[in-house]
Design a protein around this nucleic acid. Sequence first.
DNA 1: ACTGTTCTTTTCCGACGTCAATAAAAGAAG
DNA 2: CTTCTTTTATTGACGTCGGAAAAGAACAGT
Lengths: 390, 390
Amino acid sequence: MLPTPRAERFPVNTPAASQIFTTVLSQGPLTRLEVARRAGLSAAAVTKAVRPLIEAGYLVEDADAQAPPALGRPANLVRVDGGRALFVGIKVTGDEIIGVLTDLCCRISVARHTALTSRDLTAVLAAVADVVQELRIEADGFGAPVLGVGIAVSGDVDRGEGTVRYSPFLEWHDVPLAELAGITTGLPVTVDNDVRALTVAEQWFGAGAGLSDFAVVTVGAGIGCGLVVHGRVVAGAHGVAGEIGHVTVDPSGPRCHCGNRGCVEAIAADAAILRRIREATGVEVADTTEAVRLAHSGVAAAREAYARAGEAIGRGIATVANLLGPERVIISGEGLAAYDLFAEQIRDAFTAAAFGSAARCDVQTRPLTFEEWARGAAATAIQSFIRADT
Amino acid sequence: MLPTPRAERFPVNTPAASQIFTTVLSQGPLTRLEVARRAGLSAAAVTKAVRPLIEAGYLVEDADAQAPPALGRPANLVRVDGGRALFVGIKVTGDEIIGVLTDLCCRISVARHTALTSRDLTAVLAAVADVVQELRIEADGFGAPVLGVGIAVSGDVDRGEGTVRYSPFLEWHDVPLAELAGITTGLPVTVDNDVRALTVAEQWFGAGAGLSDFAVVTVGAGIGCGLVVHGRVVAGAHGVAGEIGHVTVDPSGPRCHCGNRGCVEAIAADAAILRRIREATGVEVADTTEAVRLAHSGVAAAREAYARAGEAIGRGIATVANLLGPERVIISGEGLAAYDLFAEQIRDAFTAAAFGSAARCDVQTRPLTFEEWARGAAATAIQSFIRADT
DNA sequence: ACTGTTCTTTTCCGACGTCAATAAAAGAAG
DNA sequence: CTTCTTTTATTGACGTCGGAAAAGAACAGT
């Protein structure tokens, strides 16, 4: 977001034009008329907005257009030329930095993992700069410029300011990360919360494309949730939003690190599942892979732990659906590796707890590799580049 | 919303102008410069938008401006002339119709209650027409035209279409109420869900003025919730939203009419409190007035029922705060008559269950008479008249 | 009276998007 | 093969909206 020297700028500033570009970006190849309809504009406006974008190389006409049973003049499909520009997305965790290089359509071409030896700001900054530098070298092979960097951090992040207000994992307070990383990398940097970044990726390049109200629920080490309401990601007045992990599902349940009992996260997060298996069997379980294996081999305690987790998640999703009435909920995260172990419970608990037609909400799952978190960061960088506030 | 013959129209159509008017309407008398700041526009735009509105009589310059310690040219305050136009708000319940006459600033001048003998559509329509007619006669005394009617109905209402999709109390399905009532009254009619209407009233004329993210929680016969996110009332993709009443707070709690156990509504709604007192004491309690009396006179079972209700409400509010991070939550409804009986529990449960800085959310209470529901309906009519989609 | 300060208005101008008309590109009909 | 119909894309004129900048207005000190 910072003014970085000689950075290439998107050749469009009007709200309508950036909305048109966004529509093409997220809703695949479209005819100009169809773009006009979906963006609520006239066909003329689309024609006028599209031309400079084609000239600048961001849009192309799809020559090999599939011709649906057409009457009248055949339509010319317009799509984004993903290869026109590249972006870097970075996910910072407590002990690792994951970087990806994506094109303008947020397709990953290269990924890099780097272990983090220290959580000091300077160490993280250096590691980030290293990863960005490596990916820029890779980028040379693609013949397109890298136009921005997105960094995703868990915790309380002010994207507008580009600061990390508080990160429990990194133990940072009020770090102006966008500015600092902008200096070390020489590129425009966008910083956002990791779950919100993932939500942006779904909104523009995933299962949320074209929807104005949906939710993303991540299952894994923690239980997170990104919300899109009225077409915009919810940020929360005080930096807190989407804390589905701390919705109470059982006041007499296990204690959560937040101090309450029976939070979704205290039942369905990886550590909670491992703990429950240990408490039931007395056997220490190393990691989730092991836990999944146990469950699949029929160990009752493991199966039961996953069933309870599924029920908690389903209830949490129902709570979101009851309050916001989203069109769709996308369940994602590393925890989905065990999806078959709790899919049924999620669905049953959701259906039972959803009120009235909130149950008509479409609940989907989407597998998630760890690089997807970094891809979310890239999505925020793309969003900032286009500077669409939608 | 229907095109009604010779209805007076608001002399403004541009988004900026209606936003300017809305800002003045909801944020009291303001200087033009201050309006510009809050609306994110230039001072010139405000001057240009304000003039025709003053000429049409909707705005006036406040002559008796309080002059704060001023340096430089004194500011001219602009405010809405409430007396310029009148609106009718109607709340339809299962057995009563409440109508109010308000001015443009949504201040009630007259109220009318009419018992409903039948829930048939024709009977309700006739009663609505009667109430509107009576209020229009009253309106003659104020020398201002009645410019619209708002009707609030509980259930699934499509405000855009002006239809009641489903109302459990009235047993209506897909009734085009706005159109029908428009014919019988000869005025433009807006139909909306009752809780959302109340939320609009708070957003424009109440404790939500100027906020872009807040929630209204109503406590009484049911537990409802209206949400404003990104400056707009949440309607829900399937007509369901804000169902805080069916957030589960205790999976082993009392059964709720929705089929689940331990919903907020199953613990904190009027009937739930009465039932709990009856089950604990064996004494049949007639109504909430009686229940409050018992609690005030020290009957332990009654006090405990209210305490539990407060805890459930506080947890429900915390759930909203954790998911959406609103700036403020406004607790309202007839149930507040017993506020002193559960205020402490609401606050404690909220503080305990709110995650991190979500607890910084400002929780307020606002007493609510039954006419306020009708006032909410009037607010939707005013909103439609100005046709601001904000 | 003059200056400084702040609010308000005016004038000018560029930009944006719609309207309506026109061109383009097919298949269908004769 | 020509002409018509249908649908999509483009063009240019036009009106409008809102911003920038400058001028004006209204007061308090000095």
